[in-house]
Nucleic acid binder design. Structure first.
Lengths: 243, 243
DNA sequence: CGATTTGTTGACTAATATCAAACTGTGTGG
DNA sequence: CCACACAGTTTGATATTAGTCAACAAATCG
């Protein structure tokens, strides 16, 4: 599979790209790198001249508050360009880190500029991706604001299930998720101890399981019920993309 | 002052718009309405064919979770287009409501499409605005995730001070903010009672005061210290815009 | 002016954090 | 192959933060 394949497919979900445009996307010059886990791709304060396409593996964005606590802002999966915003917001306001061994394609901003300058439809599609990114942040705020620990956890994993399924990385029953309980805590604003206890409760209730970097959704109905999850904010295709 | 003035000024902050482009912005057809407080401009699920420019007054975006609790996602001030994203994300995933009597300019999506189609620099500037919107959401997540009640409150008001000052609606010492304590609670994920107690503590400590829809920053140093506030995520101009 | 919303207070409860220790697995060097 | 180190998970006890409830006061509105 071509490295931009997942991205192209996703951009086509709601945008009618011509074959010419799809070709332009595919011929975007990528510097492909294979990186170990916990590699910082960009740091807060950096002024990068490229953005990163996740081709394989996982990444997360995070920010360290002045009280020393780290907040994870989002998790990223293949097909995502987590730092696309650095094309227009020159100074990074957060970090981007790999969570697992990952293959990443660096896309020079100059190349992106050229692409969106010559192909307005691609510009629209990429803009739309950044808007979905924001929609996910909004729901994350709701999650932190109004839901207790267990619901928050279930919501996060439900979202990830949908996003993974949308790029063909989950059948809806299980998917890879290389995260420690402590990282989950940093994402959800919970202590490690609480994360552990919530996970145990879900295990006991045959709702879901998270072990050895794999999530198993044992009962999606229960996950939805526990979290009040509704995936419309993900703005996914109504019909799953045909391969 | 022309209704699009604040918007134009803001878009010029980091984007070099020609006079021609500035004129195009100013001649954007606006349907201007004066609305009472608590008017829903758009509702979750709507598929609007226009976006709203806030010309005067305040608005907020919010979402009601399945458990019935409402989360306020953001506050909006003159010069903002809170629902610009509806141009590309056709179905609203949250509500937009006025918080005070407000003057709003409805901009037809068709007009926006024309504008960005003919003026790429404006498209870039608007795209950038939506990216700042997302940056603010990210910081909001940090706020909810890692900061205790008082710091959270102080951070929110510090942000608002900076944004209000950036459009000339605050001298840095005080600004209008027509919000109830209960709404503040919905924004910060706190109960009304806690909001009340935090505000009293700030009053007692001569840090800040919020009364009768006005915020007074009595000691900005202390506000920053209490919240760990750093405004770089707002991506404001390094030099304040000259009038 | 009464009615309703908003702000304030105290007593009590619930959720979650913190701390400290033990346990499990996994990889590494001797 | 074992011993050890290390990272991650699990557990129990305790502390802290914030929520809930209920009443009342103050402000606002028609």
């Amino acid at each position: 599979m071509h490295p931009t394949e997942m991205l192209t497919r996703r951009l086509r979900v709601d945008n009618h790209l011509t074959n010419d445009e799809a070709t332009a996307l595919r011929s975007l010059p990528l510097e492909i790198k294979t990186l170990p886990a916990d590699t910082y791709l960009v740091l807060e304060g950096d002024r990068p001249n490229h953005s990163c396409l996740i081709i394989k593996g996982f990444a997360s964005r995070s920010k360290v508050a002045t009280n020393g606590k780290r907040q994870i802002l989002s998790f990223h999966i293949p097909g995502d360009i987590p730092d696309l915003q650095s094309l227009f917001l020159k100074t990074m306001d957060h970090d981007l880190v790999t969570m697992s061994p990952a293959t990443v394609g660096y896309i020079a901003h100059s190349a992106l500029e050229r692409l969106i300058g010559t192909h307005p439809a691609i510009a629209r599609a990429l803009w739309r991706e950044t808007l979905i990114d924001a929609a996910i942040f909004r729901e994350w705020i709701v999650n932190m604001g109004v839901r207790p620990a267990a619901a928050r956890m279930a919501h996060l994993l439900a979202e990830l299930r949908q996003r993974m399924a949308a790029v063909g990385l989950s059948n809806g029953e299980e998917f890879e998720f290389p995260v420690t309980q402590s990282e989950l805590g940093e994402a959800l604003g919970l202590s490690t101890v609480r994360v552990n206890r919530v996970l145990q409760a879900f295990r006991a209730g045959r709702v879901l399981d998270l072990q050895k970097n794999f999530v198993t959704i044992e009962n999606y109905e229960k996950v939805v019920e526990a979290s009040g999850f509704d995936d419309s904010y993900l703005h996914l295709a109504r019909n799953p993309p045909s391969s």
